[in-house]
Nucleic acid binder design. Structure first.
Length: 268
DNA sequence: AGATCGGCCTGGACGC
DNA sequence: TGCGTCCAGGCCGATC
């Protein structure tokens, strides 16, 4: 489940392999989440950036390729030392000057769209995306205001991507645990918001250093797994003792998402 | 307008 | 063994 650290790890490996290359041809299986992918053919690729969980590749002629890995998306290159060969789950292929890049996506939750640069009208979440958590745009006071702007429970509100970009189910559980914030809290005070602000930045930065969290499908461009899974203390750890207080962590469902938290440390 | 919910999609885990 | 059921999850569109 690629979130910001996973997408950033992909971006770092992807950028040097596509920037400056021309996309000679594109093939894509028809699916609702692919929009105008053919328009990438013939264009040269500029900078590859990331916003939240989205990859943004600048193209010639004022266009932009937007990619979201969904749950199981990955980019792989043929003919390399990792031995990658396309399989039945390749949904799109980009022939470059010097390589063939496949977009593999078992569950088809991924998005590929070619749009006029910056025109995200068809991508509501990207259009309303909150600040980048590891940039100066992510300000603790404004984050506190953003949290106060909704009466939703704090965790589902984080997952909308509006208070901050790139936090998904894994890192939401981790950051809330670290900041001792109850995921179901509908009000988070200024002081607590600041602690959560710092926790989000720490959790994401540490996960980037470990190149993301792999359970099964997430792979970097070179086929390797991230190393962060062994460091999770909350997500997926229900029943295990809280590393802070020893109370068994509890699994609940919040906004339809599995949620793990400490009933003592994260009391309201 | 904001909040909520179901649908999308597939493999794997689980129960019988 | 084989079948059925449920779950995971981000995002989007419909509905309340």
């Amino acid at each position: 489940m690629p979130e910001l650290p996973e997408v950033e790890s992909v971006r770092r490996q992807l950028a040097p392999r596509v920037e400056g290359r021309r996309i000679v041809a594109v093939t894509a299986t028809p699916q609702a989440r692919f929009v105008a992918v053919d328009a990438a053919a013939g264009r040269r690729v500029g900078a590859v950036r990331r916003r939240g969980k989205y990859l943004l590749a600048e193209l010639d002629d004022g266009l932009e390729l937007v990619a979201h890995l969904g749950m199981t998306g990955s980019f792989r290159f043929r003919g390399g030392s990792d031995g990658w060969q396309p399989d039945a789950y390749v949904r799109a292929s980009f022939t470059l000057d010097d390589a063939v890049m496949d977009f593999r996506d078992v569950r088809r939750f991924g998005t590929l769209a070619v749009v006029p640069a910056g025109d995200y009208r068809g991508l509501a979440t990207l259009a309303a995306l909150g600040p980048e958590p590891l940039s100066d745009d992510f300000d603790p006071d404004r984050f506190a205001l953003a949290l106060a702007a909704s009466r939703m429970p704090v965790k589902p509100w984080l997952l909308t991507q509006r208070p901050v970009a790139g936090v998904g189910n894994i890192y939401a559980d981790e950051a809330l645990w670290r900041a001792r914030v109850n995921p179901a809290a509908r009000r988070v005070g200024r002081a607590r918001a600041r602690v959560l602000w710092a926790a989000i930045r720490e959790v994401l930065a540490e996960a980037i250093e470990r190149e993301g969290t792999t359970f099964r499908d997430y792979r970097m461009v070179n086929g390797e797994s991230g190393r962060n899974a062994d460091f999770l203390v909350a997500y997926g750890q229900a029943g295990r003792p809280c590393p802070r207080c020893g109370t068994p962590l509890r699994r609940t469902v919040l906004g339809g998402r599995g949620t793990t938290s400490c009933p003592v440390c994260q009391r309201r």
